[in-house]
Amino acid sequence: MASDKLGPWAKLRRLFATGWSWTTRLAEALLSTSWRLRRYLVRRLLSSLVSVAGVVALTFVLLHLIPGDPVDNLLGEDARPQDKIELRRCMDLDQTLPIQFGRFVKSIFDGTLGYSCPDRKLTVAQRIKKALPPTATLAVSAMLVALGLALPLGIVAALKVRSRWDAALTAVALLGISMPAMWLGPMLLYLFYVLVPWFPGPGEDTGSLRGLVLPSVMLGTHLMAMLARMTRSSLLDTLSEDYVRTARAKGLPPWKVVLKHAMRNALLPVITVAGMQFGALLAGAVVTEKVFARPGLGTLLLEAIAQRDYRVVQGLTLVIAVMYVLINLIVDVLYAAVDPRIRV
């Protein structure tokens, strides 16, 4: 490969150039398209904004729905009154509700998400930023596991419909959907750590690639089963389309018909669902991180819950929900750019 001889800078420049060309191509596609697409995009953007506003309001309300006094919950009934006042001030509980809401919104816009009380050492945003990369890595690799297994399985099942392969896939998908992740994880650990020590155990080597395998499988299995089912039914639908018959009639080799003509359209709903489920992976990482004792957002959430650190729980809920809304927005925009039927 020629790219092996390139220096790191050249590689980076090339990567950047590729990324840039894709971005401009996408922007071009979006800008040059009809006013209908633009109207769709604006509407989609506005509805996302409404969702984000609702999420902000709901996460604020959440903290104020707690029965009893959060300060008493944190410090206990018989804490020193001085500490109570201090904590109350730190949590803004001495202010009226509108001011509290205003400060909460301000803490979102200045990017701090507030401080953990009573010690004001780190902002919530800093703690989340530190915990985000491991969870993002885990979620992405779980997504890769899910897609990497689901697509071939779904394709084989759809091509050999009503065969033994198909029946096997249906069974595997059903098992995958019914398998509770918190059981799959410990079983994987037992099989591949205790019985055959191929992979590191909980808490060991969490940064390495080998340490990522079992957690990704645990997190990705449910999604894999869902996507395999979808790939199969979606591909079955497209295989009966006229243009696939035409492609076959032209004498194209079968693999070309399937991969180039049928799969292109069959993939769209699968990719959409995969994108929509990415947020579920972030939430599901809580259980995975507990089983494998990995650092990340889930571990941070459980820590915050144990310490009754309300601000961190609030901030994490907000961040994950907003990320989820953004991912869905991006998926929808891409979808609209790729599929001309949406623009109508």
């Binding site: 609702g54 729905l65 707690i66 939430a283 599901g284 809920t317 994950i320 929900a321 809304v325």
Partner: peptide, 16 residues
């Protein structure tokens, strides 16, 4: 907008 069990966890966690 709250994916999966996130909202459930948040509610249960905040209530003592």
């Amino acid at each position: 907008a709250f994916p999966g069990i996130l909202l459930n966890i948040a509610i249960v966690a905040l209530v003592p």
